[in-house]
Write a protein that binds this DNA or RNA. Structure first.
Ligand SMILES: [Zn+2]
Ligand SMILES: [Zn+2]
Ligand SMILES: [Zn+2]
Ligand SMILES: [Zn+2]
Lengths: 123, 123
DNA sequence: GAGGAAATGAAAATTGTTGGCAAAAGTAAA
DNA sequence: TTTACTTTTGCCAACAATTTTCATTTCCTC
């Protein structure tokens, strides 16, 4: 049976405190402010657990690699600014899902990554 | 100044011969049929060069990791069937690009991964 | 051809992630 | 509570993927 641990609680708090996709290193850094002894392997183990639980979701960024974000925040997508290298969450969806794939394909989910320049970098 | 090498030419040929996203290991395997001595580091180096040149594009597969595919094949996206674990190229685009991000964001490119069941698995 | 810069191959070094194990901590029954 | 049991942790070794180092080879220009 699954036990509650201060480590996993801390990791959950990290995601609650930062409302954006986080990398493993960020989870570790922020998590250590809550539980000083927090270990990297523990972070990996718990990220996996939280994904299995459906509490987290893993997304892939073309250059940043794996990022983790909370589920249940409503359908949204991501924008990567190649100037400041930040990932933004973009609410809503501009995909015409019914036209997304040819007949016969059953589309159950989709992931969209936008690339460009964010408002503050665009000046 | 950039020089033409038999190795890079071989790598380009590999992509021309296989019209689908390829992993590093596949590029190495197929490439060695053209240049026996082809080295893994050379593959990595040239994949990077070809991406910088805009000749290749890197995409991330949720479980296979990084894949490389030719650019200039027309705008398209990818579909991952969670039954047979195959990646399909989906021609065309169903994204309303003008509505994809809030005002201020300059969208220059986007990547879409569809998930679901392919026609042959859907029966 | 000769000279010089760039690219390659081989291996070491990094980086990212997972696995083993003894010790620590959570849970439930006594 | 305390005890007994099991999960989870921290540390570290083991992997895997990718990058770097460096001596040697190859390409290109003269
Ligand atoms: Zn920016
Ligand atoms: Zn959407
Ligand atoms: Zn299928
Ligand atoms: Zn598109």
């Amino acid at each position: 049976m699954r036990r509650n641990t201060t480590q996993r609680t801390a990791i959950e708090q990290v995601f609650s405190q930062h409302e954006r996709p986080l990398g493993v290193d960020e989870v570790l850094t922020y998590g250590r402010k809550l539980v000083e002894s927090l270990n990297q392997a523990t972070v990996y183990r718990n990220l996996k657990i939280l994904i299995d639980d459906g509490w987290l979701k893993r997304i892939f960024h073309p250059s940043l690699g794996a990022l983790y974000e909370r589920t249940g925040k409503g359908h949204h997508h991501h924008f990567y600014c190649h100037e400041c290298h930040r990932v933004f969450e973009i609410p809503g969806c501009a995909l015409r899902e019914d036209e997304a794939a040819p007949d016969g394909f059953v589309v159950e989910d989709h992931e969209i990554f936008l690339f460009g320049v964010c408002p503050s970098c665009a000046g």
